[in-house]
Amino acid sequence: MKLNLYEDKKTKEEHVDVYFTNMRPMIRQLIDTVNSERPMLSGRPADEDLDDGDEIMIDPKEVYYLDFVDRKLFAYTGDGVFRVMKTLAECEELLWNYGFVRVSKSDLVNVFKIRTLKPAFNMKVYACFDNGEKICVNRSYKKKFDEYLQEMRRMA
């Protein structure tokens, strides 16, 4: 995408004009950023069982996947694991435009972080990430996952 920046001291109201061919996720992300609505996940380091660590902001782009375990939601990033104070359903809705799709009852994966999809001998399909971890794409969510990928391609 071409980016033009104009400095005009006389401008009374700063503004952004976006020319786009179709409303794809990247454009939506741009709109969210301009409107200061870009979703950020707030979380705490999940190491040990301490919940009183410093709260930090996590950029969804850095998240490999979200895992719901023992009624707690964890975000797996390259920098570590963080506990997120939201529900999986909320995150699913919030991060739809950011490449996140549900692949099982307890996992939401970032399709932009998947290195490859691999079928196992037992016919289960795993999404493998750059950090070496893998998440099973549950067959109940297969259709939804397929539709999401098609939708993302159509919009991209």
């Binding site: 490449g99 399709v111 932009f112 999809l117 691999k118 079928p119 098609q150 993302m152 391609r153 991209a156």
Partner: peptide, 16 residues
């Protein structure tokens, strides 16, 4: 099907 989806994923990631 997995191979096809892998190609689709690569395409989406490239476009992004």
């Amino acid at each position: 099907d997995t191979r096809k989806k892998n190609d689709l994923l690569k395409e989406i990631q490239k476009k992004e």
